[in-house]
Design a protein around this nucleic acid. Sequence first.
DNA 1: GCAACTATACTGACTAGTCAGTACAAAGAC
DNA 2: GTCTTTGTACTGACTAGTCAGTATAGTTGC
Lengths: 192, 192
Amino acid sequence: MARPTGTKRSILDAALALAAERGISGTTMDDVAERAGVAKGSLYYNFSSKDRLFEGLLLEGMSALTEALREARAGTEGRAQIEALVTTLLARIKGNTPLAKVIAGEIFRTDRPWQETSFAFRHEVLAEFAAAIDEASGPAASVPGSTRLMAASVFGATLMAGLEWLIFDPDQPQADVVSAVLATFSGRLAGQ
Amino acid sequence: MARPTGTKRSILDAALALAAERGISGTTMDDVAERAGVAKGSLYYNFSSKDRLFEGLLLEGMSALTEALREARAGTEGRAQIEALVTTLLARIKGNTPLAKVIAGEIFRTDRPWQETSFAFRHEVLAEFAAAIDEASGPAASVPGSTRLMAASVFGATLMAGLEWLIFDPDQPQADVVSAVLATFSGRLAGQ
DNA sequence: GCAACTATACTGACTAGTCAGTACAAAGAC
DNA sequence: GTCTTTGTACTGACTAGTCAGTATAGTTGC
């Protein structure tokens, strides 16, 4: 699963940029070849189909993200884990906004050939958040299954705020965005 | 802006169901006609183009949602507003999951002919959440622009948790999902 | 009572164009 | 001398949109 270089890299980069602009279905293989500056034949020499190309793209992006989240959580303890995950996720969204847009658009689709891949990724990401939530609030969750839903909440909050930030107000400092997301969880809104 | 009936209704319903399964780009007009049980010509008699059809679809769904959120907030005060908005949004997502899936997949796209419509909707929804946040935490927000980001966080948390719920564990009672989302904001995760 | 006309809704075969994928001869790269 | 890439032409299935014609229910004139 080494990060591709050379022609494969150009193709993946071009495909990602285009998919972020027009969606995967709206991106044609001719477009990808042109933007990558390679011949169309090279696309099919390196990837067996359009589906495989985009599957590879998502797999690569998702692996990098889960890896980053895993490391962020491993380096911290207790309540700081949530903060570390939120900070890391926001940094990743900023560092690769096109990927974040594509993932956000794909995450609820249930009809893709790479669904399996995508669900596994989703599971891993939520597992990191769930583990951080257990660390922060004690493992004695009141309702069974609620940790996973809370993990989805924290992930969804960060993703939505991150894209809101980068699409509509990209000049705002990253630290302010981290603060805003964490403030949402601080108890000021719904302390029991 | 009366809710269409008859043929228009069948077409919109079919288009929504298909778009939730395959995305808008992945849905063909022939598919829509077949599922709606009408001839393809009727699609074009009732809507001038595929884009207009889906714009109408999103507009209808988004109007109903903002209206519901507005009412929910108007009926409550203080911190209960957040809870009312989260509850209402989750109920709507459950009541029309296909629409929620389509909106979730569209909300970050910046290349659609109906972008204006979509951004306006986004703005209205976030305005409701922002108003509730102001009510809950006092208008003296620490960082300029942070209320909008917090609104995006709360909205994103609810949307992600709602779809997680309905796609992966639809038998879980709605009340548990509301609790889980609100628990995320309770301060147990990141109380300062 | 009925023929002629109008308005509206709908039909489905058809057109013009698009796009994933293929073919293959030639040229670099290592 | 094999692996990779190029360039270009091509195929065939698919798709948005069109349009001449049909169905039906009024309405008007006589």
